[in-house]
Amino acid sequence: MKFNSLRKIFKRTKNKTKGKYQKNPWRSELNDIVRGGCGGFLFGIPLLYTMEVWWIGSSATPAMMLTALILTFIVVYLLMRTEGFRKPRRFNRRYQAITETVEAIGIGLICSAFVLLLLRELSPGVSLKEALGKIIYESVPFSLGVALANQLLGENGNNPPDSRIEQNQSVGINATFTDLSATLIGAIVIGFNIAPTDEIATLAAAVTEPWLLAIIATSLLISYAIVFQAGFSAQEQRKQHRGIFQKPFSETMICYLVSLIAASLMLWFFQKLTWNDPWTIWLEHSIILGLPTTIGGAAGRLAI
């Protein structure tokens, strides 16, 4: 109802803006949000796998929660004055930095609540105050990540396409190999922070099979979004790669498997998993660590 009236109010604005500049404002807006969310995941996921932050959130007083929100607002606002998650940058608007700050915090709150729910850190048994504390404290790195979205993986918009041509010459098996190793490197960089900690075992204890499936789906979705949807740098270049697994869907699948294997190897390396453990434990733990390693792997493929 609220949005209907909003729509009516801004119908005129929409008609006017329907010029040649943006063919579909909804689509570009969605891309902006996805890019922001991906930046949030890249920056925020290591802290989501930190028990201490859940506890700090659980025992935080409402006054501390508001302070955390205000501090986040200030920091994100300062970041937004120089760089945001939208493309192209529009500095000439009034209050642009403030509206984008509100949006970044909104995206941060939604993303952190979603992952906390996925990891069963939010459940019906958790009291409202505790849930709020967890969401707010976890949303801080997410909001920062949203603000840094364009900087995390660079902006391609103004780059001359020189490098692309060079890349295209080495397509084929080489591109596939580069992608797989980039995935592995990215997965290891993120996963090494998380694999030796106790969080994986703690989370695995609380997660049931349907939630594991949901975690797999989320991993694939975020990986796909980061590499092919979010409009980070090198994305156009990626779509032109031609190799064995270079179609977006098959690449996402293969790289997810690589990230899963990397996750289980790291868990084994840190002796969190041993050969005596049943395969169900290996699977559960790898899937739970697979979420951050997939995100790292996706970022790795864009970075290289």
Binding site: L6, R7, K14, K16, T17, Y21, Q22, I105, G106
Partner: peptide, 21 residues
């Protein structure tokens, strides 16, 4: 001049985000 105006999509994002906050 056109760029300075927010699109409906951006207004929707902003209103949802601010209502969440």
């Amino acid at each position: 001049k056109q760029e300075q105006k927010r699109t409906t999509a951006e207004w929707v994002t902003f209103s949802i985000a601010s209502s969440i906050l």
